[in-house]
Design a protein around this nucleic acid. Structure first.
Length: 575
DNA sequence: GCCGTTTTCGGCCCGACTGTTTTCAGTCG
């Protein structure tokens, strides 16, 4: 059974949990958590790296010991150290840590003194009023635990960025209207453009005596006030989305914005740099001894530790600090850089608008070109096109091109990649198109090797241009299919074809680390809307966000090219 | 357990809020 990076990360996370409960050295616990994070964000397959004889201790947070443990896990799926831990701490205690309000100390106490190992036992004990007898616990804590268990499965879910935006934007407008409020901005993973967010972190600067805290908890959509102090409050909205509000004085805006934008790992690195300069960095500013020296803008924070300004999307402690020190940060792509869209649908298949409406909407986005790429015949649920209907659509495109000014319509198809890697339409008809977008819509459950070679075979087709939504994941709905994307990226590089970053908020499946990998391998990424209605072009902002998280510059993206250059790049793949 | 153009040992980010406390531990972000 092959062991993947996620399996290694899971072992390290479990080690961290159990060590934490054991009251181990907190820095040792952190070392395991850091290692899990490194492994998850790696992008490259650890198994392959070991085969190639790469030195794992070169990876951040991986030393001699953890490198050995990685090799052990790759071979056996686990490590002796974890087995030993299981003898002392039951594995099920890890799930108790997931309960908000229960940390390692309390979990340890309820296990040691009440022999509670599972959520079920915990709930039972709380019902009977047994928890309040433990030292450090009281009736309120006990009730809180009961409440949280009841809501646990609900609150654990993350929200799509696009959904969070629907709550965040009106709330920020509401906060800005409150007396004494100067600025209100969403920080956290929302600002970093993560595809899902667990909560909203909102930062406000306000004059002393502003009623912002009281007004905030009175907001119409607030369902429950979790905590409320003078500078910080937490509420749950009716949707279940948690919102944390922090209020700081205006002069601290930059320091606070940096602090609350995170990520946590990035912040730790920046503060560590501060320490080396004998500076203390917190949400109120930069301090030299007692004296506040900076912190009104984020740029000051970075400057104080010798770094260039780092865009929020890069702040994941994945090399951005080093790059900022060397002035080697990428100039990230922006929405304005897109010159067109290479994946859209019409009502000929499963789109909701006719071609002309869609093309006009693309033109309203300021695009020079748009490709119509409806589905192919195998996708019967979407009324997929056969050769005859596709040719008819091509004629329609010719007509539209002669009629409409200001935009060029390209002829394309989103052709199904069949189980054996062949395409759903013949080379003859594909050759008549400007581009061929290939996609997997069936047999999601093939084993990894088969799935990978299926996709590679499809890419080898003479007329294959772009691999659409390369992992097929639908957030909250369907996991990615099991595919070795690193291999797919390398194959695209050899073959000279392109990868799509699909901007649908539920997809965004060319995740940041794979964007980075594509960039390193010299594979151009196509940021497409996959629009089915005119409004879907708005989704491109999320695709751009993901691309920025993946360090992509304008030059790394296929559809930033003007039409004449794009055509050359398409011709290259079209034989 | 990691890490080092100050260190191979002794550090490892920092503050707010809650609940159970009588001055603070635990948890969270």
């Amino acid at each position: 059974m092959p062991v993947h990076n996620e399996d290694v990360a899971a072992v390290f996370d479990e080690m961290a949990d159990l060590l934490d409960i054991q009251d181990a050295n907190p820095f040792r616990v952190r070392a395991y958590r850091n290692a899990a994070r490194t492994v998850r964000g790696l992008g490259r397959d650890l198994g392959e790296m070991v085969e190639q004889g790469k030195d794992l201790t070169k990876l951040p947070g991986i030393g001699k010991d953890l490198a050995e443990k990685i090799e052990e896990i790759l071979e056996s799926g686990t490590t002796q150290a974890l087995k030993d831990l299981h003898k002392e701490v039951p594995a099920s205690l890890g799930e108790l840590l997931r309960i908000p309000g229960l940390g390692p100390k309390r979990v340890k106490a309820i296990y040691k003194e009440r022999k509670i190992k599972t959520l079920k036992q915990l709930e039972k004990a709380a019902r009977k009023g047994e928890l309040r007898e433990l030292s450090g616990f009281g009736a309120k804590t006990e009730q809180h635990i009961l409440d949280v268990i009841a809501a646990h499965r609900e609150t654990e879910r993350r929200f799509l960025l696009s959904v969070a935006a629907q709550y965040a934007e009106p709330l920020v407008e509401y906060l800005k209207e409150i007396k004494g409020v100067k600025q209100a901005v969403v920080a956290g993973s929302y600002r970093r453009g993560k595809e899902t967010v667990g909560d909203l972190d909102i930062l406000v600067t306000a004059k002393k005596g502003s009623p912002v805290m009281d007004r905030f908890v009175e907001y119409d959509e607030v369902d429950e006030v979790v905590s409320k102090g003078t500078t910080r409050a937490t509420v749950l909205l009716r949707s279940g989305l948690q919102v944390d509000l922090r209020v700081v004085p205006e002069q601290s805006f930059g320091a606070a914005l940096h602090y609350f934008t995170g990520s946590k790992a990035h912040n730790i690195q920046v503060r560590r740099l501060g320490q080396q300069e004998k500076l203390k960095i917190n949400e109120y500013g930069i301090f030299k001894g007692e004296k506040r020296t900076a912190g009104t803008t984020e740029a000051e924070v970075f400057k104080s530790v010798g770094l260039a300004f780092i865009e929020p999307e890069l702040r994941e402690d994945r090399g951005e600090i080093e790059a900022a020190r060397k002035k080697k940060l990428p100039k990230l792509i922006a929405l304005d850089d897109l010159k067109g869209d290479l994946h859209t649908h019409t009502n000929a298949t499963d789109g909701r608008a006719d071609m002309k409406t869609m093309v006009k909407a693309a033109r309203d986005m300021g695009f020079q070109y748009v490709a119509v790429t409806d589905h192919s015949k195998r996708l019967t649920v979407a009324k997929g096109l056969d050769a005859r209907r596709l040719r008819k659509q091509m004629e329609q495109i010719d007509e539209l091109n002669s009629e409409l000014k200001g935009i060029t319509v390209l002829k394309g198809i989103e052709v199904d990649i069949l189980e054996d890697g062949s395409l759903d339409l013949s080379d003859v008809v594909l050759s008549e198109l400007d581009l061929v977008v290939g996609a997997v819509h069936s047999h999601f459950d093939l084993p990894r090797k088969k799935q990978t070679s299926r996709i590679r075979r499809a890419m080898d087709h003479k007329y294959f241009t772009i691999l659409a939504h390369p992992t097929g994941r639908l957030l909250d709905e369907r996991d990615a299919y099991d595919v070795d994307l690193a291999q797919v990226v390398r194959h695209a590089a050899q073959r000279g074809c392109y990868l799509e970053l699909n901007s649908q908020p539920q997809r965004l499946d060319l995740v940041d680390t794979y964007c980075q990998m594509a960039r390193e391998e010299g594979v151009l990424v196509s940021i497409n809307s996959d629009a089915h209605v005119p409004g879907d072009f708005e989704h491109l902002r999320f695709g751009i966000g993901q691309a920025r998280r993946g360090w992509l510059e304008k030059a790394d993206v296929l559809n930033t090219r003007p039409l004449n250059q794009l055509k050359k790049l398409l011709n290259k793949t079209m034989g």
